[in-house]
């Protein structure tokens, strides 16, 4: 019960932040240079046409009215129409079509990275200043120093062109069909419609982006896990466990691991924004036609509604993930009071 209350409280606390982000997006989007009306008009247009288009977009209203209109639309689910990528299509549609690909690489990477990163971090801490530690530490240090897009390019060059064993760019072999759109997640759609070869083709295209993004993420998680593990191993209760006669393996696995996991969870949450940025960069590098592409267009051509939609979506995900991690944190650490 107290847990539900705690979650509820966290959601309440997140609401002002969400509201603030919405306001900030609104203000920033109106501050952006460029006139969105132009994008809706044909090459040559008359003043009347321009004014009519402006009226249609609702830009003649006072700013405050526009703001409230925008808020009400966001909460009723009508996120407006884009006028750059595909003229007149609802933003919602564009996001649903493009977001799953970004989501796929992000989610696969974070899962892979958490599993491997926590493990390597613990191994490094366990063998402090020995060969394994130096090796993982060095690798992690290089990992956090590599620009993700450059790593992507190098992988493309090596595996896509030089050895020619994996597709370098895109998310599907050209000419291959699409599964019927059911859940918008391509992988699941492929399985539902029974088109295994499509799923395989998709996965084959995802290998490099996922490898690229997870490498960077593994590096930062390893570093974090290592340092928190080292800190935990210095604690008195570890000495108590040893004084009890516990095996070194048990000392690490039962006594130290959970304590070391707690700060790591926080850091993973805080770095999630970085992960999303990394996902956007990766997906642009590999030309997956994901959210990043749409975002770039939206910013370049001042597409208010598209930009707002994307930012809103990302913020909601960010807040949700942090909420989940908060709950996990409370679950891991009994010292937290709900």
């Amino acid at each position: 019960m107290s847990m539900i209350k705690y979650i509820f409280r966290r959601i309440l606390a997140a609401l002002p932040v969400l509201f603030g982000v919405l306001t900030l997006t609104f203000i920033l989007s109106r501050l952006m240079p460029g006139d969105p009306v132009l994008a809706t008009l044909p090459e040559r247009f008359t003043t009347e046409q321009y004014l009519a288009a402006r009226e249609a977009l609702g830009l003649n209203e006072p700013l405050l009215n526009q703001y409230f209109d925008y808020l009400s639309r966001v909460f009723t689910g009508d996120w407006g129409q884009t006028y750059t990528i595909a003229k007149g299509r609802p933003v919602w549609d564009i996001i649903w079509l493009r977001f799953p690909r970004t989501f796929d690489i992000a989610i696969f990477s974070i899962i892979i990275a958490s599993i491997i990163g926590l493990k390597t971090g613990v191994i490094a801490a366990k063998h402090r200043n020995k060969f394994r530690d130096t090796f993982f530490r060095g690798l992690a240090l290089i990992g956090v120093s590599i620009p993700v897009f450059w790593l992507g390019l190098i992988l493309q060059f090596l595996f896509g062109y030089y050895f020619d064993i994996l597709p370098a760019v895109g998310y599907k072999t050209s000419g291959i069909g699409d599964p019927p759109v059911i859940t918008y997640l391509r992988l699941i759609d492929c399985f539902i419609s029974g088109q295994w070869y499509l799923a395989l083709d998709y996965l084959e295209h995802l290998i490099l982006p996922i490898f690229c993004l997870s490498f960077i993420t593994i590096a930062s998680i390893t570093r974090q896990a290592r340092s928190s593990m080292l800190e935990v191993l210095e604690q008195d209760y570890i000495r108590t466990a040893r004084a009890k006669g516990a095996k070194e393996k048990d000392v690490i696995n039962t006594h130290a691991r959970k304590n070391a996991l707690i700060p790591s969870v926080t850091i993973i949450g805080l770095n999630f924004g970085g992960l999303l940025a990394g996902a956007i960069l990766t997906e642009t590098t590999f030309n997956l036609h994901g959210l990043g592409d749409a975002l770039l267009v939206a910013i370049r051509y001042t597409d208010y509604w598209l930009l707002n939609g994307i930012v809103f979506l990302i913020t909601i995900i960010f807040i949700l993930i942090n909420l989940m991690l908060d709950v996990l944190y409370a679950f891991l650490d009994p010292r937290i009071r709900y």
Partner: peptide, 21 residues
């Protein structure tokens, strides 16, 4: 021998007990 024949208690009982167990 540790914990069975020779055991030890420490100065700071809060830090000597594992906080998450």
């Amino acid at each position: 021998y540790r914990g069975k024949d020779i055991t030890m208690i420490f100065q700071d009982p809060l830090n000597s007990l594992n906080p998450v167990m």
